[in-house]
Design a protein around this nucleic acid. Structure first.
Lengths: 106, 106
DNA sequence: CCAAAATTTAAGTCATTACTTTCATTAGAC
DNA sequence: GTCTAATGAAAGTAATGACTTAAATTTTGG
């Protein structure tokens, strides 16, 4: 969960996530939306990918990216546990699950 | 939302939040749970307070802190907006199951 | 008022991070 | 193979952040 939370803590990465939420976009098109250089966007995409928040698909020389909502599962569980005390148990379960699946998402 | 997200992106602050989730604690008691100095915890509490995630109450020379779940409202909305609706059912199921085995863990 | 206790504030250090520019890699067209 | 386009990787920089120690603040009790 730590990786996912750190990933969405940066506003630029949230903006990128919003772009590829429903639509599959290549890195160049994503970078065109911001006034930063290509490599900067590429680095953000790497962070998002390693956090499990986007998935990459290669098409010829392009790489297409799309959001991966499941990557926010643990974050969602944490927020909701904090939100509603009755869901405390769910949070603990999420923590256990994260320890168990170490190595699945990388 | 940016402040709240940055606040919970740091593991130590999440640990602090967990401590004051149910229970009102003074800064000293919170610091006693970690192997960092008092000022470090005090700084974290300031960040959490400014993000609206904890509330402070003064009692004599002490300052008591307690979690403030409403502070995560925007984060919750953001996370849920990204969530794949098809996975909603899974969560609810887990919730129901959790309620079913109520009373076993005490 | 004076002293002790709980905590914040100030100032500085070390690691992390978001970015830049420059170089390397991969895939398709010729 | 060579050229070009799309992109990732490497290396460097400036800003941010999580800590530390030392000093200042606030409240209570004499």
């Amino acid at each position: 969960m730590d990786a996912a939370l750190k990933a969405i803590a940066a506003p630029r990465r949230r903006d990128i996530l919003a772009l590829v939420h429903r639509e599959e976009l290549c890195a160049g098109d994503i970078a065109a939306h911001f006034d930063v250089t290509w490599p900067a966007v590429s680095q953000h995409l790497t962070v998002l990918k390693e956090a499990g928040l986007v998935e990459e698909r290669r098409n010829g020389t392009q790489r297409l990216y799309r959001a991966r909502p499941e990557g926010l599962a643990d974050v969602k569980a944490f927020v909701e546990a904090f939100w509603d005390p009755r869901l405390e148990a769910l949070k603990r379960e999420a923590e256990r699950e994260e320890k168990r699946k170490h190595g699945n998402d990388r």
